[in-house]
């Protein structure tokens, strides 16, 4: 199994798309600088120690879902259509193990990309805004201020990035299922971008649906570390669990029954 995961990671890390994505994350970190220059940041108390937590929402709602779609398009749809999926399947590897390796490789990549984003956030935040004396995080929507010591703030930031792997991986499982039904990686990515936008609109126009929408749980870190709302966290675990397991099982069933014709 480790060799299968290694194979997937070699392919992902040798692909230019990964580095394009990392460059985009780097560019996203510079956006607040632009906002600072234009004055659109207002009174939001940003400092180097809080900057990664502010950036996390942007990563979770926009950058990472697109990035995950691109990675899965490469790992599944393009791998199948290009005929390279066949290469593994004509060797003693079961389809279930291959899928498991791809999912674990995806989880590894999500973790590494979040870690990269976290480090960039600290570097850019400190350079642009200075480290700051206190950890003050303002929820942009509710305008609630959360104040912690620098050490607690660091732990909360680290924890927030860590728990965010769960909703991203759940989103990845939904994309995974879609990936088996597309014959073009580009079309898959386009559909996923459309899905992210549609889910945001749906959440806005039908607020009652929010508890069952996956993007609602991109804010899991807030429930867990800022609001400390245990009930909300439990609901999130259940919903994200369902979003992870059901598509994964359906993907496994699809792959096991699929005729590999490319």
């Amino acid at each position: 199994m480790l060799n299968l995961i290694k194979n997937e990671l070699i392919k992902l890390t040798a692909n230019k798309k990964l580095y394009v994505g990392m460059f985009i994350i780097l560019g996203v970190n510079l956006l607040p600088l632009l906002e600072m220059v234009t004055g659109s940041l207002g009174d939001i108390p940003i400092a180097g120690q809080t900057f990664p937590l502010y950036m996390l929402s942007t990563y979770l709602n926009v950058v990472m879902p697109i990035f995950i779609s691109v990675l899965i398009a490469d790992m599944i749809t393009d791998d199948y259509v290009n005929g390279t999926l066949t290469l593994s399947l004509i060797h003693p590897v079961s389809r279930g193990r291959l899928l498991a390796a791809k999912v674990l490789a995806l989880a590894t990549m999500i973790t590494l990309l979040l870690l990269y984003s976290l480090l960039l956030g600290y570097v850019f935040g400190s350079v642009i805004f200075g480290w700051g004396e206190q950890f003050i995080y303002q929820d942009v929507v509710s305008e609630t201020n959360y104040t912690f010591s620098a050490a607690t703030g660091f732990v909360i930031t680290l924890g927030s990035y860590a728990v965010s792997i769960a909703p991203l991986l759940a989103f990845g499982m939904v994309v995974l299922l879609l990936a088996f039904h597309f014959n073009s990686g580009g079309a898959l990515v386009g559909t996923c971008i459309g899905l992210v936008i549609a889910l945001s609109f749906l959440g806005e126009i039908a607020q009652g649906l929010r508890p069952v929408l996956i993007n609602h749980y991109f804010a899991l870190f807030k429930y867990a570390f800022l609001d400390k709302n245990t009930a909300q966290v439990m609901v999130a675990v259940l919903v994200l669990g369902a979003y992870s397991i059901v598509p994964l099982m359906l993907s496994l069933r699809t792959l096991k029954k699929k005729d590999i014709v490319y």
Partner: peptide, 14 residues
């Protein structure tokens, strides 16, 4: 995007 050797390594790993 992989070298000839890396492509073979993908199979050797199986």
């Amino acid at each position: 995007y992989l070298t000839g050797r890396q492509n073979l390594l993908q199979i050797a790993n199986l």
